[in-house]
């Protein structure tokens, strides 16, 4: 008190302000600690189920029946052997998923870029109607026309054939829309014009000059195409009947039988095999994926 009395009013107000600021800083610090705790809890909730699957994949059924583990066990090879004995062909299902994804990525990305390029660069009568069609297609849930799709696949002889899931990727309205926005923002038309003066043919201008410039956008869209076809389950379950054509999600569906419900060790190994490729892929490319989500904002 005595000390304070000796202060001038100016010094006093400064002292009080400092005191208030210090208090606010402490409050902010406490709030921040709570926020971090919340964020970390959510972090664990998001990651833990995958981690538990990976851990359980290395544990035996009898171990899993009595306890819950956070460290890896030593039964991975036993579980794999058990799966092999059941005639579960992961390799073939994995390859089918890879083939379908690769084909679907190529078709959706290439055809969509061509279409977007045409809409931006050329001036033709149907240009606006086609763009409107693309926007309409984004809104219409074509997944609901399953009955018609089923009949079509039968009609063109693609029943029980993985091409039934590669070819439809050619219509990717969201990708067309995204590529259009990217071309408008990033490809200078003068550039195309100078290529024309150099005598390049239109098709080669697109393939050799424009396509490489679209690479960042192509990569983003390729990732989404991959996730979509890798996770596709509804129609493959109906159409891919023979075992050699199953994809990973279809195979997972077949593992629902009773025998797997009891053998939970090997079941987790199977789950781990199904998710591992995507986890690796995501770990490598998450930055682009998250950027793509922010840019697109169009996923259901």
């Amino acid at each position: 008190m005595e000390q304070q009395a000796a202060l001038t009013p100016l010094e006093l107000s400064k002292l009080l302000r400092e005191k208030r600021e210090r208090r606010e800083k402490i409050i902010r610090g406490v709030i921040k600690v709570f926020i971090y705790i919340g964020l970390i809890i959510l972090f664990l909730i998001s990651i833990l189920p995958f981690y538990v699957v990976l851990v359980n994949a290395t544990r035996s059924t009898s171990e899993l029946q009595v306890d819950f583990y956070l460290t890896f066990g030593s039964h991975l090879s036993n579980n794999l052997e058990w799966l092999k004995k059941q005639n579960v062909d992961f390799v073939s299902a994995f390859l089918n998923s890879v083939y379908i994804s690769a084909g679907a990525i190529f078709l959706s990305v290439y055809i969509s870029s061509l279409t977007a390029y045409a809409i931006v660069v050329y001036n033709f009568k149907l240009k606006n109607p086609i763009f409107i069609l693309v926007l309409l297609l984004i809104m219409v849930p074509t997944q609901l026309s399953v009955v018609g799709f089923y009949a079509l696949i039968h009609g063109i002889g693609l029943y029980d054939n993985i091409w039934a899931f590669i070819l439809p990727a050619g219509v990717a309205p969201t990708t067309v829309f995204f590529m259009r926005q990217y071309i408008v923002a990033n490809i200078p038309l003068d550039f195309i014009e100078s290529a024309r003066i150099d005598g390049c043919k239109e098709f080669w201008i697109f393939n050799i000059i424009v396509l490489p410039l679209l690479l960042p956008a192509l990569a983003t869209m390729a990732i989404f195409s991959l996730i979509a076809s890798w996770n596709n389950f509804f129609m493959p379950k109906i159409i891919l009947l023979s075992k050699k054509n199953w994809t990973l999600p279809v195979l997972m569906d077949k593992l629902k039988g009773d025998i797997y419900r009891r053998e939970i060790g090997p079941l987790h190994t199977a789950l781990a095999i199904a998710i591992a490729p995507l986890l690796v892929f995501y770990a490598l490319l998450s930055r682009y994926i998250i950027k793509g989500v922010a840019l697109g904002g169009l996923k259901g």
Partner: peptide, 11 residues
């Protein structure tokens, strides 16, 4: 936070 979105809904 985005990780769960990447893995097959079926899985």
């Amino acid at each position: 936070y985005y990780l769960p979105n990447i893995v097959t809904a079926a899985t």
